[in-house]
Each structure stands twice: as C-alpha cells, then as structure tokens.
Computed example of a mutant assay.
Amino acid sequence: MASSSAHEHRTSARSTYLTSMAVCPTHRVLDRLGDRWVSLLLMELAHGARRHGELARAVAGATQKMLTQTLRALQRDGLVARSVTDSMPPRVEYRLTPLGESLLPVMALVTEWAERHIDDIDTARVTYDSVTSS
C-alpha cells in the first residue's frame, strides 16, 4: 500500500476544498458582490432604469470595458436586465430584475453594518499592524 506524502495530502485537500467552494451558494454570491463595481451599479439601478452613459457618469471610476463586463455578468446572473428600444440611435437601458431588487435589502444591511463598524475595523488593523511589525 502506497502512502501519500504530506504535500500530496495537502494538494488533495486543497483541491477538494476549492471544488466545494465552486458550488457553495454563499461563496458564489459573495464572489459576485465582491466585484469592484457591482455594489455601485446595483445601488445606482435601485433608483430605476439607467442608460449606459448615465451609469458611466454615476460610476465614474469604472472604465467602459469594466462597466460593460460587469453589466454583462449581472445580466448573466439574472440580477440586471438590458432592454433595447428600436429607435435611431438604439436606446439601451439597464434595470434591476425582481431577483436584483430582492438583493437590495441585504445590501442595505451590509452597508449599515459597514458604516457602523468601519472605525472598529480601522482601529483593529492599526493595533494588529503595530503588534506584528514589532
């Protein structure tokens, strides 16, 4: 019977763990919400349908490419819908789907928690850094 080395065991355990994370609903949702522009776009769309240019102005730090990629990912996830009006030039709007709207209360709670506790986090980081750098 062949025994595996510690390295092989760690590699196998890591592979198993990564596979479980790929199907974990919480991990998958937090992964999407953790994308840099997602929360800003969702909060902007919470106010109603917006054209691409309006979103670009509201989320001024995002490049055209990142804005488009993020909106496509949100469409793919069913959180945002894209509609094109047959006009010249075509009018493209983005809006939250009912699924996307159902996420807003959760985001509001996270925002409230973050605003309430960011000073505590900053203090903890300063304390940690001062202890670990000594």
Rank of each mutant, 00 (worst) to 15 (best):
S102W: 06
S83T: 12
R116F: 01
S39M: 07
R76M: 10
R82K: 13
R125T: 07
T19Y: 07
S5W: 09
P105R: 00
L42K: 09
Q69E: 14
T85N: 00
Y128Q: 13
S20R: 10
L40T: 03
L99R: 12
S4F: 15
G34W: 14
A81V: 09
R57A: 07
H52Q: 11
A81C: 07
T70D: 08
P89K: 01
S15Q: 14
T123D: 13
Y17S: 11
V84A: 13
S20L: 10
L96M: 03
H52C: 08
Y94E: 03
L103N: 05
K65L: 12
Y94Q: 01
E101V: 04
L79M: 05
H27D: 09
A49C: 01
H117M: 04
V131E: 11
T16F: 03
P89E: 05
A13L: 11
W37G: 02
V126H: 03
A56W: 03
G100C: 01
R32V: 15
T26H: 12
E93C: 06
V38E: 12
T11P: 04
R82Q: 11
E115A: 03
S83C: 02
R116M: 06
R116A: 08
R57N: 09
A73N: 14
R95G: 05
S102D: 07
V126M: 13
L71Q: 00
L104W: 06
I118A: 14
R10W: 11
T70M: 11
R72V: 15
R82C: 11
V110P: 09
D86N: 08
G34Q: 14
C24S: 14
L40P: 00
D77L: 02
T19F: 09
S83N: 04
Q69D: 10
V110S: 11
L71F: 03
E44R: 10
V92P: 05
R72L: 15
A22Q: 15
V110L: 10
E93A: 05
R14L: 15
L103V: 12
S20C: 02
L18C: 02
A114F: 12
R95Q: 06
A58S: 15
E112N: 09
A58I: 05
R116E: 09
G34D: 14
L55W: 04
S133Q: 03
L71V: 01
A108K: 08
Q64N: 08
S39A: 12
D129N: 15
T85R: 07
C24H: 15
A2D: 08
L103K: 00
A58W: 06
T16D: 07
Y17T: 11
V106R: 02
D122Q: 14
S3P: 06
S102A: 12
M88I: 11
Q64M: 07
M107C: 05
R32P: 02
V84R: 13
I121M: 10
L109G: 09
R125L: 15
D31A: 09
E8H: 13
R95P: 00
A124K: 05
M66F: 15
L45Q: 01
V29K: 04
L45R: 01
L45D: 02
A73S: 12
I121K: 06
V131T: 04
T68Y: 09
H117L: 05
A46I: 03
T123H: 13
V84K: 13
T127G: 10
R116D: 10
R50T: 00
M1I: 08
